[in-house]
Design a protein around this nucleic acid. Structure first.
Lengths: 117, 117
DNA sequence: CAGTATCCCGATGGATACTG
DNA sequence: CAGTATCCATCGGGATACTG
């Protein structure tokens, strides 16, 4: 039997900075990009290889957005052929715990599913 | 001066269950829905009020998907007018740490930005 | 209350080709 | 190498109206 709900329920968690963070890591590919950058600086083509399936277009789009938001740092190395280093800023590094938590849960979810099938 | 990269870099984290989890919480509104459910069972219209801005269409869509994935439990209370209780399953509860990590980072990000402006 | 059914528009993102 | 430009199909998701 279901217990009757108190009119004010169990109190919803205070207020939600979820969107705040999701606006940053919400975009397609974005978590993957940040995740790969979390291991250290990468060049454009390295990232393109790491983040399997991403197109150059999307990768640039996301990197630009992340750079504008102060999450990643872009450093052009003047050389021929030119290379560009992408890395997480301090601000970007703060996202790591969240990404790791997601990875962790993803792992446990996978285990559960595999166990059931 | 940038240090030269070792050919094998700093080793990318093993393999990525990111997508595993993102496939679940990735959808628009989804994290918010789970977040609100994490405080306890809710009825359809309560959720619709909690998750500000969501349309009935999207809410049903997401809830159906989450139910199919075993993340939320749907319980129809036979009464007039009918009510429906949504709650997190054990599996769904495992997502809470990830959501909380995201909320936490979102909060810190907000603080940083506010400090700068 | 708790949805379902349609219509419909705009953004997302892939493929491809081109450039400094 | 590190992108940019263009074309174009898809589809997420809002508005609205209807139902058991």
């Amino acid at each position: 039997m279901l217990t009757r709900r108190k009119s004010k329920v169990e109190s919803t968690p205070p207020m939600c900075p979820l969107s705040e963070c999701l606006a940053i890591i919400g975009g397609q590919w974005t978590p993957n990009i940040i995740w790969h950058l979390s291991a250290g600086p990468r060049r454009f083509s390295e990232l393109k290889d790491d983040v399997v399936g991403v197109s150059a277009k999307m990768l640039t789009t996301r990197l630009k957005k992340l750079e504008a938001e102060g999450i990643v740092h872009r450093e052009v190395v003047p050389s021929s052929p030119p290379t560009v280093e992408y890395s997480l800023t301090d601000l970007g590094a703060e996202l790591k715990p969240a990404i790791e938590a997601i990875v962790d849960v993803g792992h446990r979810l996978k285990l559960r599913r595999d166990a059931k099938s």
